[in-house]
Design a binder for these strands. Structure first.
Lengths: 205, 205
DNA sequence: TGCGCATTGGACCACTTGGTCCTATCATAT
DNA sequence: ATATGATAGGACCAAGTGGTCCAATGCGCA
């Protein structure tokens, strides 16, 4: 992929995460990516919409590198991985100083009702995310109560994190996210079978 | 307050909850409220911004009627009230068929970073909401573990509900919200002191 | 040398945005 | 009778929107 293209995508990603999709104009993106003019932009993207879709994809891939990779890590106890994943979400949010949360949550709230194309794509993002957590829970099932509903629990985790990121943004206070993350871990721990021990943390002791 | 004013506010509230604040134009509101023209609108509101603020206030008051009133209900066991409150949020969402969630969550995601005026007002809404839950938890403290942190727990409840509403909107599936609501109740129940019983449900048996 | 893509730069398009201003009509309360 | 506020309707504004088109340059690759 050409250099310019990614440059445009990066600039757009920043702007969209700051101001939302509708409030980010093509001219803003052009300024942000230091292009010479409209023709230059439309040389790479056929419309603003297409730009948005590609930004969404890229953002997901980036997030996948950091967040989902942790969920898949084969050498660590699955439930331990889940905690690390939650920590990663907190860390990601910290980087922007508590502002601009998960780019998916933002776009979801902005466009879920208004723009079907985006809604479907965001749904797919959440689904891949959820399925990764589900398979992790499946892997951890020896340590979990028999009645744990992986579908429901995975949704709960995502919802709690998205909600936490949103509140953190509104309150401009990272400790909100930290507190919720800690509670979420406790909620997950609630599903652990009595007497079950994390396999890896035991080895480490 | 004049009839027209509330008519405009109602139309605006609907439009904003459907398409967001930035994507709702003054002309849209004028059409929605069946006004004769711009001058008619600006006869009642000095700017679109002011309109937005008043819509936010109204929406909060309306929500307060339904949701917060339940939290205050003096004749019901506090923890039972909390469950009823969660049910009310689910019911509210059901009315719009799983679409357009909490108007605060929507506006929060859209404007928290971009528009300080809205951010502050939304923060105030969440705070009043949280404080109502906090005082409920305080009331319920005889039934709760000593180490329950009311501030954190109240935030967790709000975050989980906001996140749940968001996911429900994205997935266009009300059962998502219902599942998360059920899990949230279980999480709250986790904080109940061993042997404690809900005062009122006992009376009813 | 020439082909094709990348880049530059700007004119231009129809349309929408929030907002102002002006005039005129109508009812109601003083 | 008169002032006040609601209603109506339209002209107008500067600025911004996404998007098109064109002409002229680079620039490397065959």
């Amino acid at each position: 992929m050409s250099d310019r293209r990614t440059q445009i995508l990066d600039a757009a990603a920043t702007l969209i995460s700051e101001r939302g999709f509708t409030s980010t104009s093509v001219d803003d993106v052009i300024k942000g990516a230091k292009l010479s003019g409209k023709s230059h932009f439309y040389h790479y993207f056929k419309s603003k919409e297409e730009l948005g879709y590609e930004v969404l994809n890229r953002q997901f891939e980036r997030f996948a590198e950091r967040g989902l990779a942790i969920l898949r890590e084969p050498m660590i106890d699955p439930l331990e991985r889940l905690n690390l994943f939650i920590d990663a979400v907190v860390a990601l949010q910290s980087e922007s100083g508590g502002r601009r949360g998960s780019p998916f949550g933002n776009l979801a709230a902005e466009l879920a009702d208004a723009h079907e194309g985006f809604r479907v794509r965001i749904e797919a993002v959440f689904e891949r995310w959820a399925s990764q957590i589900r398979s992790l829970l499946w892997e951890a099932r020896p340590q979990l109560h028999d009645d744990v509903d992986a579908v429901r629990l995975s949704r709960f985790i995502i919802a709690a994190l998205e909600g936490a990121v949103l509140m953190t943004r509104v309150k401009r206070d990272l400790s909100v996210l930290e507190g919720i993350a800690a509670d979420l871990k406790r909620f997950i721990a609630m599903h652990i079978r009595d007497g079950a021990v994390m396999q890896h943390s035991r080895n480490l002791e």
